[in-house]
Computed example of a mutant assay.
Amino acid sequence: MTTFRAIPLAAPPRSPGRAWLAERLFRLGVARLPVHVRLPGGELLGRGGPVMRIERPAFFHRLGTGSTIGFGEAYVAGDWTSPDPAAVLTPFAARMATLVPRPLQVLRRFVDARRPVGERNTPDGARANIHRHYDLSNDLFGTFLDESMSYSSAWFGPGDDLHTAQLRKIDGVLDLARVGPGSRVLEIGTGWGALAIRAARRGATVTTLTISSEQRDLARSRIAEAGVADRVEVLLRDYREAAGSYDAVVSVEMIEAVGEEYWPAYFATLRRVLAPGGRISLQAITMPHDRMVATRHTQTWITTYVFPGGQLLSVPAVEEHARAAGLAITARRSLGEHYASTLRQWRDRFTAAADRVSELGFDERFRRIWEFYLAYCEAGFRSRYLDVWQFGLARH
């Protein structure tokens, strides 16, 4: 377990001019939204809907000096509250590109932060970035994940609980890559071993790569407990160091940690290790292409407080980089609505486990960061601003 070291949440900068402008823009944007916003003096804004309470004027100072990062920081600081933050955030996410009138969007360059150079996903940088998230504590993730310890979108069928839906998702990934008896499988991004175990039980032999020592250790233990250690090898290794030739290459929501600078290297690796006639199965979170282009160099609340170095692709970006690497997309399915449901269940579990999270050494501020993170992501998928796809790929 790594010691939790969050970036300190500074007191709201006093910037009356920016706070005044932020309040005017906020009022203008909220007036068109199906939300119910109560200001500190009791004034109501919005067209009605989920309730957001602005508790103190510091909210507008954070918004004026930090834009979307300030919006999240204000929640963590208690400057705004809501009985259901995901419901409040959903209409904001649905209108992400138009909340600020286009003529005024030029002002964002004065408040949007640039991505830190120190968080580039070089081999060493990627390990440091992953360490800050995945090595927090296996027990922490266990407070809200299902028993498979799957930290990616589930795929719900009628009446499925979360665990059943996670196994359905894993089977979908394995089916796209045609994993069966005798398959040689490379997994890029081990997680806590659920997919490797499932593939081994199909009769495959699996090599799985991770750069998280915490994940490696627990994955090895879980694989041994499942009785498939003779068919699964867990390596602490960067995807760029992958070696060998495989009938199937699978990677579930790992590409979000690669970074635009290294997308060509990632897809080139997929092509390099894929045996002739083999198949690739890739699960990836996506965002609209125009927003990806507009925000590609921008630091966000998520990359500041939760996923340093993280960056989402768009579907056209996946298509472009796959094609450039000599790969063709043979199948695709969207699971965006399923991710919204997955995140809702994770957030409910995390909130219910507040006492256990405290016992693990994580304070109230950490819990509010993660409550906002899970709500923020749920809103992205519920509004369809975000999506998640399973892609099947093959050599050209």
Rank of each mutant, 00 (worst) to 15 (best):
F71K: 02
F71A: 11
F71M: 13
F71R: 01
F71T: 03
F71P: 01
G72H: 08
G72P: 03
Y75H: 11
Y75C: 01
V76K: 02
V76D: 00
A77G: 14
A77T: 05
A77C: 07
A77F: 03
G78D: 04
G78T: 08
D79T: 03
D79G: 01
D79I: 00
D79F: 01
W80K: 00
W80T: 00
T81Y: 05
T81W: 04
T81N: 01
T81V: 08
S82E: 04
S82F: 03
S82W: 02
S82R: 09
P83I: 06
P83R: 14
P83C: 12
P83E: 11
D84Y: 03
D84F: 07
P85W: 05
P85V: 05
A86Y: 01
A86E: 09
A86L: 05
A87C: 07
A87E: 14
A87P: 10
V88E: 00
V88T: 03
L89I: 15
T90V: 13
P91M: 07
P91F: 03
P91G: 07
P91H: 02
P91A: 09
F92T: 02
F92G: 01
F92P: 00
A93W: 03
A93H: 08
A93P: 06
A94F: 04
A94E: 10
A94Q: 14
A94L: 05
R95V: 06
R95Q: 14
R95A: 15
R95D: 14
M96R: 12
M96E: 13
M96N: 13
A97K: 15
A97S: 15
A97F: 09
T98R: 12
T98A: 14
L99M: 13
L99A: 12
L99P: 10
V100C: 09
V100H: 04
V100A: 02
V100K: 02
V100W: 02
P101M: 10
P101T: 11
P101G: 09
P101W: 07
P101A: 08
R102S: 10
R102P: 13
R102M: 15
P103Y: 13
P103K: 13
L104I: 12
Q105A: 12
V106C: 15
V106K: 13
V106G: 11
V106E: 08
L107Q: 12
L107I: 08
L107G: 10
L107V: 07
R108W: 13
R108E: 14
R108M: 10
R108N: 10
R108H: 12
R108S: 08
